Amino acid sequence: MKGKVLHYFAGDHTAKGFYTLYDSCFQGIGLVYKLNGTSPAVKSKIMKQLADASQEKGMAVELIHRSSDPEELDGVILPEMKIGLVDSDLYDGAGKDIDTDTAIDTDQLVNQEDEIFGLKEKIENEFSAAHASFATGLHIHDGLEEIYINQMDFAKANQLAVELNDQFFGGITETGRKAVIKHRFFGASTPQGVMDYIENLTEDLDKRYFIKGRAGTGKSTLLKKIAAQAEELGFDIEMYHCGFDPESMDMVVIRELGFCIFDSTDPHEYFPEKDSDEIIDIYEKAVTSGTDENYATAIMELNRSYKSYMKNGIVILQETKRLRDQLEQIYAAATDESKVEALIELLNAEIDSSQED
């Protein structure tokens, strides 16, 4: 039987630049293969094939997708074996270096240095433009939040947090363990639009809580309070950051207790599908009745404006992908696929050997 696969992002192009969480994802992994080299596509191919082989052997696999091209991978984790593979450009931790340029004729690339440099410069400029567009959108979104903040009953919001923590953790004693907290992204801004893997990440959980609300109604604060309680008790936590504003939280998962709670509003709006799913409506519980109607015009204009900047950022990311594809074509022409396959076989043998040990 194939092993279970989890899909998620650990880096994203956000309103605060390119934001990385890779180091957190690899904590506790005993052996990390750091793939060095020129071509991200070669690194991704190696990771994909090793992940597929491990899954076929029944191992659990975590696939860390590249936000600038979700069909490609930036990392793979085999949690049961405590082995990982990652693009070394994204990970600062210790590991075993693997030179993927042994499969590339780098002398051939020397003749195209100017073209390569020009494409890289254009790509960086486009990414910076996307970040700037997202930042403008976030600034406008702050104005939307202000409307609801001014209509919030914070005592009721705090009481809701207390009640939920009692519901989730009431009667549970401390485990005596130190909680392991892993940070990931809830979703990401990609050339295909805003994407997430929420269905995959939550499908095996007994209970899913869907937070409904509005901008500024304390969804992230609520999630942080729940995570703090879980940490105090010693439960391992998965914290999923907002792909728009990475300092905000969109989901908390406590797998040991079989539940998750997440922001289920636009642009990642979900609704209950299972009998055990439950909605928690902060707007209904803690916002002045009639706020949507009383501020309808301002809300509509702010929503329209911030979303226009978000869409513009996505369009720019589409251009970065086009440029990156051009760059990868240059690398592909200099790549010896038989040497790539040899690297894959070598790593596969090492992983098999680790399993036997």
Rank of each mutant, 00 (worst) to 15 (best):
S276F: 08
Q329I: 04
D89N: 11
K43R: 13
N111H: 07
L222I: 14
L233T: 03
Q318H: 07
G118K: 04
L346T: 15
S276T: 11
Q192S: 09
D101L: 06
L323F: 09
A161G: 10
Y209N: 01
Q112N: 07
R322W: 12
V252S: 09
A332E: 12
A342K: 09
D166E: 12
F244Y: 15
Y270L: 05
M1N: 08
E146A: 14
Q329K: 02
L63N: 03
N158T: 12
F134H: 15
I330T: 15
M59D: 14
K34F: 02
G95S: 05
N125A: 11
F259E: 08
E256H: 14
L347C: 10
T265M: 11
I254H: 06
R255N: 15
A298W: 00
K212P: 04
Y91V: 11
T288Y: 13
D206P: 01
V340E: 03
T14Y: 02
R255F: 14
V76N: 08
I83R: 15
H65R: 08
A349Y: 12
K57W: 14
L302N: 04
D101G: 11
E328V: 07
S289E: 14
A15C: 11
L90A: 10
S276Y: 06
A215T: 07
V180P: 01
A215N: 04
